[in-house]
Amino acid sequence: MPPADKIIQLRKILAERFPQGTLPTSTFLSTGVTGLDHSLGGGLRRGAVAQVVVPHPSGGSALLLHDIIQTMQHRFVALIDGKNSFEPLAETPFLLWLRCQNATQATRAADLLIRDGNFALTILDLKQNSPRELRKIPATTWYRLQRVVEETRATLLLLTRYYISGSSYIALQINEHLQMRDLSQISSVISDSLPIEFLYRKTFVEAEYASA
C-alpha cells in the first residue's frame, strides 16, 4: 500500500474512532449543492481548507463550481482559475475572477486573497493544472494557506484532479463520468446526484471548535 493511501486509511480509522462534534450552523457556509453540503456536514467550514478531488476530465467539477457561484449571489466570491479555463454563464456581479497561467501563480494569488479577508469564499481551481505543476508546489504552501485561512476566518475550497493538500480539514472525491445525454439535462439535477466519497476528514477535539 503506498504511503498516501496508508495516511488516508489511518485518517479514516481516526475519524471513526473520534467522531466529529456538532458545530453551530454559523460555522458553515452552504454551497447550495445538496449532496456536497450533506457530505460536508452542512457546508464548507469557515476558517478551514476543504478539498474536492475530481479525477475524471468530465467529472462535474465545473458544474459544481457554477452551482456554488450561483448560490453565493449575495456574497463576495473569488475564483482563482489555475489554468484560465472558467466559462462564465450567467451574470455574476460579485465574483472576482483571477485568470492564472499556472499553479504557482494561483497559489500566490490565493495567499494574497485570503489574507485580504474580504471574501466569504475563495475557490482555488487547479483542476486543469497538470500533476507536474502541482507537484512543484511545496507542501509548506498548503500549510501556510491553512494557517492564514484559520487566522482570517476565510473559507478556501480547493478543486483538483489529484489529492494534493494534507492541510485541508476534509477531502471529498467525486467519481462522476458525465455522458453525452447529460448535456441536455437540467444541471441542478446532475449536480445533486453527483456520487461523492470521503477521502478523509480530520478529527477535531470539541475544545478546538469552541476556540474557533
Partner: peptide, 20 residues
Amino acid sequence: GTDQAKHKQLRIGVPLRRYR
C-alpha cells in the same frame, strides 16, 4: 443597480472548461 431578487436560475446542460 444589481438585481437583488435574483434567484437560482434553471440551467440546462453541463458547463464547459475552455482551453485558452
